[in-house]
């Protein structure tokens, strides 16, 4: 039954050595996060000790050159824009994966898949450029200035859509065929097979893909910077401009020194904290079994 031509098995004297090699890789991957976290803490330490973490939440505004360090509005805006983007992109992405796997003829499905994969590679600056020159003026016609929460969440949802579509597609394709045969044998309709059998079986991987996409939305920098308007405030409507934590870093990092620079690293630290909270939440929700 095994038709693989090349054999690597002579490389492994036994499972112990293989286990060690793989374990070392895993350690390396984990060490990376620790390294980055240490770096973030080191860079933000000066303001964390001299100003204290609470002022980043309680200060009235973000004017670091005038010693005001309120990050709370940006924290809120980051969470809102990412949530909106995921809410738009997740149904579209899952639907497009269903299209690929079950509805489109083989050739069309393959072409469509390549299209989606290529969309994953359109640079964020290209999305930003399109947003800035096409989408923002369009929204601005109805509700100036156009650069807004709406523009940012639409652009973000386009950017994370391929991630959701591709991972969902891959997840569906790894569902054992026997499930499908079982469903057919039971006389289930196409709709019931997809909704009740296939998607639940691929649930873990689809969830992982959506989380990955949410993380990308939270961390996206350049495109958001170009279309969101970057005013530091809690957005109260879809048409309000707003600034995310990442845009804040990208806009000001190259121009910042001293406490200003250190407080930008606090933005990064805060974002990492949100992602940490998200990941832990997802882990709790799935009852400790994050990925199957």
């Amino acid at each position: 039954m095994i038709s693989s031509k090349s054999s690597f098995s002579f490389l492994w004297r036994n499972d112990k050595i293989l286990g060690r090699v793989l374990w070392a890789s895993a350690c390396l991957s984990t060490a990376l996060l620790i390294l980055i976290a240490m770096f973030l803490v080191k860079e933000s330490w000066p303001v964390l000790t001299s100003i204290g973490i609470t002022r980043f939440i309680t200060d009235a505004g973000w004017y670091p050159l005038e010693k005001l360090f309120g990050l709370a509005p940006m924290l809120g805006a980051t969470v809102i824009v990412s949530t909106l983007a995921v809410l738009i992109a997740a149904p579209l992405g899952i639907a497009s994966a269903i299209f690929c796997s079950f509805i489109a003829p083989r050739r069309i499905a393959q072409a469509y898949r390549s299209l989606i994969a290529l969309l994953a590679g359109i640079p964020s600056v290209a999305y930003g450029l399109w947003g800035l020159t096409v989408l923002v003026p369009l929204i601005g016609q109805f509700q100036p200035p156009g650069a807004s929460l709406l523009a940012a969440s639409l652009i973000l949802s386009l950017m994370i859509l391929p991630t959701i579509a591709l991972t969902t597609d891959a997840a569906i394709s790894t569902v054992p065929k026997s499930y499908l045969q079982g469903a057919t044998a039971l006389g289930l309709t196409r709709e019931a097979t997809i909704i009740k059998v296939i998607l639940p079986a691929a649930r873990a991987s689809i969830g992982a893909g959506i989380l990955l996409a949410a993380a990308r939305a939270l961390g996206e920098t350049m495109a958001v910077l170009m279309v969101a308007g970057n005013v530091v405030q809690f957005p109260t409507s879809l048409f309000d401009p707003m600034r995310t934590l990442t845009a804040n870093m990208a806009l000001e990092m190259a121009y910042a020194t001293g406490d200003h620079r250190a407080s930008l690293f606090v933005s990064g630290l805060m974002l990492t904290a949100i992602v940490m909270a998200l990941a832990t939440l997802a882990w709790r929700l799935s009852g400790g079994r994050v990925h199957g």
Binding site: A26, S29, T30, L32, L33, I34, L35, I36, F39, L40, E43, L211, L212, A214, A215, R216, L218, G219, E220, T221, L245, T246, M249, A250, M253, F265, G268, L271, T272, I274, V275, M276, L278, A279, T280, A282, W283, G288, V290, H291
Partner: peptide, 25 residues
Amino acid sequence: QITTLSLDILAGVPSIVFGLFGNAF
């Protein structure tokens, strides 16, 4: 659990932080 969790977090670190980290490291 610990490794997966840390990788999830790593996936969410914004690219600009990777840039600054890469520059420093």
